[in-house]
Design a protein around this nucleic acid. Structure first.
Lengths: 265, 265
DNA sequence: GTGCGTTACTTGTTATAACCTGTAGCCCTT
DNA sequence: AAGGGCTACAGGTTATAACAAGTAACGCAC
């Protein structure tokens, strides 16, 4: 975990995080004191504190004045739900995801697409249509519109093995920092039905996504159609100590996961 | 907002947070620079930075090296995502929700329902079918199965004005503490289509819900069908300072909201 | 006019240093 | 033995200072 270019405080927090996540400490174990870490890494206390603060906001540790810093119980720091990517979803449950690019060409932006991407209508954007398969069985079809700048960056990527996110983040160090996502339902038109081996009119789970980079520029607009008989989204809702009661039944989302249903169903 | 005992950095972050929340800045407005704030409050830069970091992790602002600190769009700064109730959703946007009970009678539990409710199959449960309207226009239809114990408690409630959650929580002090929720899509059968004024086969957003009380007993199992042309769910995803990068594009869900689309669409 | 470099201003990182506050253990007094 | 105070050590707050790095705008040279 030594990344020479990274700031010292980041190296320290990475080092500590790795040890905590590998379970080298028990929950509520006392971590080395700030001064110990200062000596160990030969940095000033402000740098160590910066590292500890990162881990504190991440929920990996808690600090008590006069006592020290302690490892947070891992089960407790799941405060946030994550919406994962198709490929991650599949890989996590051991299903081989594959992807077929069925269309990839520039086209003038429609008013809708232009609005999402933040470009002028009729600007040339790149549309990529892909069919997503789980175990070689089509599960989803999506259309992605990219503004010229990002389309350029991705021009050499086949996008069959790596997601757009992965290419941007690993090859260009452009992280995705914000996104909007709308989940709806619709019926399959002839085109989508053919790609997904469905009858026209079949129910589809529709997901529209817009993603943004650090500079608030739009990375892509995407519409994705999931076969409703194969995919659904699960939400786990739970009120815990941190959430006050009396909310008329509104529960915070603790987990968000997409679910692939077996063909047998 | 002057609390003499509090640390200076806290006073500064309180001061700034108040101004941001009161809408004295537009989203993405540039805040005073760190040096400006140093002079204004007569503190060192480290103190100002400590205050800004607090607000950054809270999601009130974002910072860009070389540019400045900017007000984060207010919609994005909620640590947890909540899945709200139909009635709450409507009321929050000033739409009068109404509810018509179209069926309410005991019936023997089917194997599926029995499994969800944790009772023996063929146990007598109560089914309640309701049509949900927004401005007197049907938006959703749901079927709710209640186990005998909870059905008893709700026997005297018409359920047209109050939700099941509200009755249990306010009249009996039984809070809902856990829930599961599946979001999918399906086509309208004749029965549902009639209730929602749709053609059979129309796309519906399907939400199945199971809710649990503190003693882990199941309160109800519900299937709800939303008109896909009127409702969708929005997710706001955002990575902030507390979330390490490199997650292959998996962003935490900051907000979850249901969206009612205007009839004009 | 275009292009490049300089400059001013921004946030990011880090060092040194001082003092405050909270905690626990130790020792001395009662 | 019980009590209180002293002390060492923990994190909390804050000042001063310097340099790095990213951005934008201005101006000069070509």
């Amino acid at each position: 975990m030594d990344t020479p270019g990274a700031p010292r405080h980041e190296q320290i927090s990475d080092w500590l995080r790795a040890r905590i996540e590998q379970g080298q400490y028990e929950p509520n174990d006392k971590l080395p004191s700030e001064n110990d870490l200062c000596e160990q890494f030969d940095v000033s206390r402000i740098t160590v504190r910066r590292a500890l603060q990162t881990l504190e906001t991440e929920g990996h540790l808690y600090r008590r004045q006069g006592l020290g810093s302690f490892v947070q119980d891992a089960r407790l720091h799941q405060g946030l739900a994550y919406l994962t990517d198709f490929v991650q979803d599949m890989e996590q449950r051991g299903i081989a995801p594959s992807c077929t690019v069925v269309h990839r060409a520039p086209e003038p932006a429609s008013p809708d697409v232009a609005a999402f991407l933040g470009v002028e209508p009729e600007t040339t954007v790149v549309r990529i249509d892909r069919v997503r398969q789980a175990n070689a069985d089509p599960v989803a079809f999506d259309q992605t519109w990219l503004p010229p700048t990002y389309a350029e960056l991705l021009a050499d990527s086949p996008l069959t093995e790596q997601t757009i996110f992965q290419v941007l983040e690993h090859a260009y160090a452009i992280p995705v920092v914000k996104g909007e996502c709308r989940i709806g339902a619709t019926q399959a038109d002839e085109d989508v039905a053919a790609h997904l081996h469905l009858a026209p009119g079949a129910a589809l789970l529709l997901m529209e996504r817009v993603s943004f980079a650090e500079d608030q520029s739009c990375i892509f607009y995407q519409t994705r159609y999931y076969r409703a008989d194969r995919m659904s989204f699960n939400l786990h809702l739970a009120r815990d100590a941190g959430t006050p009661a009396g909310g008329d039944g509104a529960l915070p989302v603790r987990e968000f996961e997409s679910v692939l249903r077996g063909s047998a169903e």
